[in-house]
Amino acid sequence: MTQALINGLVLGANYALMALGLTLIFALMGVLNFAHGQLYVLGGFVTYYVFTVMGLPFVVAVLASIVVLAIVGFLFDALFFRRVQQRSAREESSMLLAAGLALLLESLILLGFGEKQRGVALSVSGVYQIFDAYVPASRVVVFVVAMLAVVLFILFMRHTKPGRVLRAIAQDRDVTALQGVNIALYSGVGFAIGSALAGLAGSLLVTIFAVNSGMGTAISIKAFIMVMLGGAGIVSGAIVGAFVLGMVEALGYAFLPGSVTYLVIFVGLILFLVIRPNGIMGKPWG
């Protein structure tokens, strides 16, 4: 039981990174980024490549994942989303564009890194005992780094000028533009930060779960669950949703047979959203 709860906490911290990235992009663009899972997978593969293949320290690998993903995110916005949002008659088009980009990224990952499952073994020695559960030190590292990133992200959004601008765009794009803010640039920055967070989650979790090129959609769906559970576009909601999903998943895998866990999660989510469509923390109707 304690073991399952601790696994849930570690999962939750990393899921929070994914959910925060997704919710940031949603708040800025009004788009659920269907390519989020593929960004996570790319983050995992970059870490694998830098750490295992090139033999550089893990810290460098994590930083490399963050930088690569930030660039990819910025380019996504600059090359694709901006154009389609300007010219499309229906705003849902950008959601579908994200689905197309997910496929594009997935095929590029497949070509670049191959179809094999890749994991990273983090060599941090030591095991901690918490009550009757054993936690390897590497998981503690993963948990601490993820929580640190969550706190940094919140501080950045609350107390820095770019953070304020991003929140202003989320509230009202047009008014923010009227104040002389370079919306195009900051949308790109927001997309870059969101993608970097997904990449960081992939980079950290690749030490626990191996990644393969085909798993992106499943990861995206998980991120969607967290964001919808907490309330789309809400930072605190994303964190709550992430920890709830992490816990439920860890408990479900410990006590339920195989795929029943996710059946329960999906049925529960549908019922929950029917009763409370704005999620735990969200504004009504989105």
Partner: peptide, 28 residues
């Protein structure tokens, strides 16, 4: 009856969940 009052991403996500729920229900 339950979900059509939802809009935008909320409706998209709930129907996406339904696709997964049906697949998993058939699997189990």
């Amino acid at each position: 009856l339950g979900i059509l009052r939802l809009r935008g991403v909320y409706f998209a996500m709930i129907t996406l969940s339904f696709t997964e729920a049906v697949r998993l229900a058939l699997l189990n």
